[in-house]
Design a protein around this nucleic acid. Sequence first.
DNA 1: CGTGATGCTGCAAAGGTTTGCAATGAAGTA
DNA 2: TACTTCATTGCAAACCTTTGCAGCATCACG
Lengths: 392, 392
Amino acid sequence: MGHTCVTATTSDEGVAVPVTIRDVARASGVHISTVSRTFSAPHLVNPETRVRVLACAEDLGYRPNRAARALITGRTHNIGLIIADIANPFFPPLIKAAESQARHRDYHVFVADTNEDPTAEEELVHALAKQVDGVLLCSPRMSNSLIEQLSREVPLVVVNRQVTGLPCVLMDVGQGARSAIEHLVGLGHRSIALLGGPRSSWTNREMRRAAAAAARAGGAELTMLGPNAPTEVGGSAVAEQVRRSGVSAVLAYNDLMAIGLIEGLDALGVRVPQEVSVVGVDDITLSRLTRPKLTTVATPTGAAGRTAVDMLLQQDIESPRAARGSGAGTALGVRRTTAQVMLQTDLVIRDSTGPGPYARPARPLAAPRGPGPHCPADPGIPTAATGDAVAS
Amino acid sequence: MGHTCVTATTSDEGVAVPVTIRDVARASGVHISTVSRTFSAPHLVNPETRVRVLACAEDLGYRPNRAARALITGRTHNIGLIIADIANPFFPPLIKAAESQARHRDYHVFVADTNEDPTAEEELVHALAKQVDGVLLCSPRMSNSLIEQLSREVPLVVVNRQVTGLPCVLMDVGQGARSAIEHLVGLGHRSIALLGGPRSSWTNREMRRAAAAAARAGGAELTMLGPNAPTEVGGSAVAEQVRRSGVSAVLAYNDLMAIGLIEGLDALGVRVPQEVSVVGVDDITLSRLTRPKLTTVATPTGAAGRTAVDMLLQQDIESPRAARGSGAGTALGVRRTTAQVMLQTDLVIRDSTGPGPYARPARPLAAPRGPGPHCPADPGIPTAATGDAVAS
DNA sequence: CGTGATGCTGCAAAGGTTTGCAATGAAGTA
DNA sequence: TACTTCATTGCAAACCTTTGCAGCATCACG
């Protein structure tokens, strides 16, 4: 296995001596219910008793068993976060924001990765169902109908997907794609390619729709490429195709693909942005670190994570799951309000886009360096390059 | 909050009608224990009965309540994964490998992010304790003694940290740092800086130790910088300091810092590798995409994830937690074997390192054009630049 | 002193499942 | 026929906690 085993010892360190509420009760000479109340409703127990119980609990190292507590209260104080691909830098900011928001409300977050696999998604929802109070489905790849069905098993909030009847957090990639196309058209590009991502992605469909409309409006021709894997590899794979197609600009499904594409073009000797302009989507940290720095549509991932958690918790509070009372069916027909929130996106102009074949030569330009007939970034063009700063 | 609320409807969609084992029993006319056995010990129930029960379960949409099951069996079939910072691209491959390995053994993985905060780490271990069968602690920031203490609450496997008495998975960054220093010395660098990461990181200490020894052996002077945050920002923050210090090469705590440093140096007009050589650690995907491509010490993250899960599960199987039988203290003094595994690292030479002031001009070199002359490692030094492909 | 209110505590059921043990019936054996 | 064995199923306790209800003192008030 290519590793070296350094040591291998055996020890008798006690394994998890499980100390329960009963042990604490015995030690402090009260009933278990008093111990329980000491933790879950302290104001109901005599201060003296309380300190005694707490001392004993501390001594014995007692920790409430959250699973048992969940069994009876119906609330786990956990929320699940199902992610298509943790390795995609788009998600960590969302995860962190969700976690921080959840923590403020005394919830813990369990993240699960599905590897872009719809089957794994479904399985994970089932697995999480009884161990969390709700699940955030981020950029799901499964069908809308399946999502609706699963939502009867556990409260769901969907991110980057529109499902009627379910609370959704959406990012306005349509607007983003429109801005990107308008930006490119304004630079003098008339032949643009859209590099598509996963077919089952809502974002992907929105982008196609909006980009097509914007291109039509701007008098540009839009070529559809893909679908491809939303990774660097998926981007570099189409470099050859891009070159052959003769387009002068590409809008990619996300930054990862855009960066991969730039790499791929570079390997083919095609220079960005001199010969081809490239725009990404997401504004991941990485897009500021590559050369050229990437022009991209910034998506408010942090806000999405926070909002999604808020919506889930709000929904949760309204309908406390397991109503007490055994046989009688639980709160059936509870009325719950489902909102859909659309978050704004922003075009961030950096160095991967430049003037296209139809650019108006506003001012005389410096002589083009290298073989390219095209001009390097026209200084006249207002490449605001605000840097970052997404509306949160 | 900068968003637009698109719709807000209310629906009566039934909320989680919780169907239990009891409902299935009633529907299929058997006792609940038979239903239970149908799922957890099918061979004990008559085939005819079994199909009937399964049909009813399917009809009603029954799903075993994992929390309740865990309460009595003591096994959740979940494992927890506590990560210092999900946004650090070092971790996703580890997470994915752990998840895949766990899935093969019918376990689910819950990931939690601590934001490099030791307090959050401790809290999360407590929160996870009763909801998982074991926890993987990745690059923990808390003290060894605390880790030992927590290990009595839930089985623990530690990654990137050496804790006596606990199973550990380590990556040989000491060897990696040595290779890196030898590589730099071979290139003619005599004044090298070590850019340190988090103080509480085991990796950090190991690197310091090994790098210092290797520098001494190679007749080079080693300047210690840091500690700093293990991020791009943490790297770019010391650019000025690096320039002033006059060193000709830097070994950074990880790739993120190395990349940030290169950015920072670039902003100061210092060229890499022409004026300063930079080496990172981890070999994250990003390190192949920046310009110049990063020379780095590849760490076997996938193997680490797999190995850690294996060790945890093996340990778990040996000591089934909650022995049946109430009062009598459970399996105290169970003998468990704790192994420590050390995984190899590999130096990957790319374009961010070049000849230093004391380079022997072995051959006349082409004028340093663009991305580095890349004096291929002094043939005397055995830096097996295998590329990537870490022994798994 | 009687009455009611208040503060604290104990009792026991409930939550969904697993599992040792016993009961049942059928089949096999002597 | 009587006895054993085996397969199948039911019974009930157990896992750890929460919580409605009731009991009991204590105290204030009239």
